[in-house]
């Protein structure tokens, strides 16, 4: 995504998604003292000031909430399907839902990573019953 005409491109401040043995993973951190998982970089744990260790969190988790945004935003045509996903043992991550935006996923739906969107956002899809 580029910035507005005449302005430099936006910095990419999103959490870092990297290839992993099982597909994609969030390259995050965990606090050595309070064990809080973090998606964003920082000099120390923002909750307890403890030291941080890097940790990979596979893109697998549970939907906290999701919606279909049906109006466009700058650089983002509508509709888009968004979800907050609580990664297993990891942080809450804002992602998009794979496939054509149709219906939101209910809270509690188990999801897994499904690649990256054309904008570079992590995509999630519901895990079929038989694969859970």
């Amino acid at each position: 995504m580029s910035g507005d005409r005449g302005l430099p491109p936006l910095p990419d401040s999103r959490p870092l998604i990297v290839p992993d043995s099982a597909g994609l993973a969030l390259a995050g951190w965990r606090c050595r003292d309070c064990a809080a998982p973090l998606a964003l970089d920082g000099p120390w744990c923002p909750r307890c000031r403890g030291p941080l260790d890097t940790e990979r969190f596979p893109l697998r988790g549970t939907v906290w909430a999701s919606t279909i945004l049906r109006v466009p935003l700058p650089g983002r045509p509508a509709p888009t399907a968004l979800a907050y996903v609580d990664l297993d043992g990891g942080p809450r991550l804002l992602g998009h839902l794979a496939g054509p935006p149709a219906e939101r996923l209910r809270a509690g739906t188990r999801v897994r990573g499904a690649g990256l969107s054309e904008h570079g956002d992590p995509l999630f899809e519901a895990i079929p019953e038989e694969a859970r």
Binding site: A65, Y84, D121
Partner: peptide
């Protein structure tokens, strides 16, 4: 940056 708008934030 990930495409969140305020309506979507409240909608969730």
């Amino acid at each position: 940056r990930a495409g969140l708008g305020l309506p979507a934030l409240y909608a969730m």
